[in-house]
């Protein structure tokens, strides 16, 4: 068994501790590594201990977590899990549901505008009546949560686009 921390763990942030751990790991390797292949948890080396507030994956904070729950229930069927307008019910709709994560939505549509569309529905905002008004079903707070979650989806989509762009650039070279 190796002592390389799992790649998803950014386990130790303190540089001093990290240096110590690296030293310890090197020492262990020099001594031939820990004997035996027992995978019981008690033998799990301390340095692979997971972090409760890991930074690598963005954590859903209060508004976003609540927004996630509401989005799953009310929005996902048409707008899709990642907000790309590809929910399973989308193919029935004409016009198609809007992608919530494109550049236009991310940069040009304000929180206020998003809130209003969700609250009053598409028809009252001069868009498709297939987007129902949620203002009588969801409270202002719930709509705020959903807006926060949509913003999180947009950040995720942007990050994904950037990494795939980078990968494309790398393979291009």
């Amino acid at each position: 068994m190796t002592h390389r921390p799992a790649p998803s763990h950014r386990a130790v942030s303190n540089p001093v501790v990290r240096a110590l751990l690296a030293g310890g790991a090197a020492l262990m390797l020099a001594c031939g590594g820990p004997g035996g292949g027992g995978a019981s948890a008690a033998e799990t080396p301390a340095e692979t201990a997971p972090e409760a507030t890991q930074e690598s994956a963005p954590l859903m904070q209060f508004e976003e977590a609540n927004g996630f729950e509401i989005y799953q229930r009310y929005c996902l069927v048409c707008h899709g899990e990642l907000g790309e307008g590809d929910g399973f019910n989308a193919f029935n709709l004409d016009p198609k549901p809007r992608s919530l994560v494109d550049d236009y939505m991310r940069t040009r549509v304000s929180d206020r505008e998003l809130t209003e569309v969700i609250r009053l529905g598409g028809r009252k905002r001069g868009r498709s009546p297939l987007m129902p008004p949620w203002g009588r079903t969801l409270g202002d707070r719930q709509i705020r949560y959903v807006v926060s979650y949509i913003r999180l989806l947009q950040r995720k989509a942007q990050a994904a686009a950037e990494t795939s762009g980078e990968e494309a650039a790398e393979t291009g070279q």
Partner: peptide, 15 residues
């Protein structure tokens, strides 16, 4: 826009 979610005569949504 009720057809967004309800099917009538094989037309409409699946919600």
């Amino acid at each position: 826009g009720c057809q967004a979610c309800h099917q009538v005569n094989q037309q409409g949504g699946y919600v």
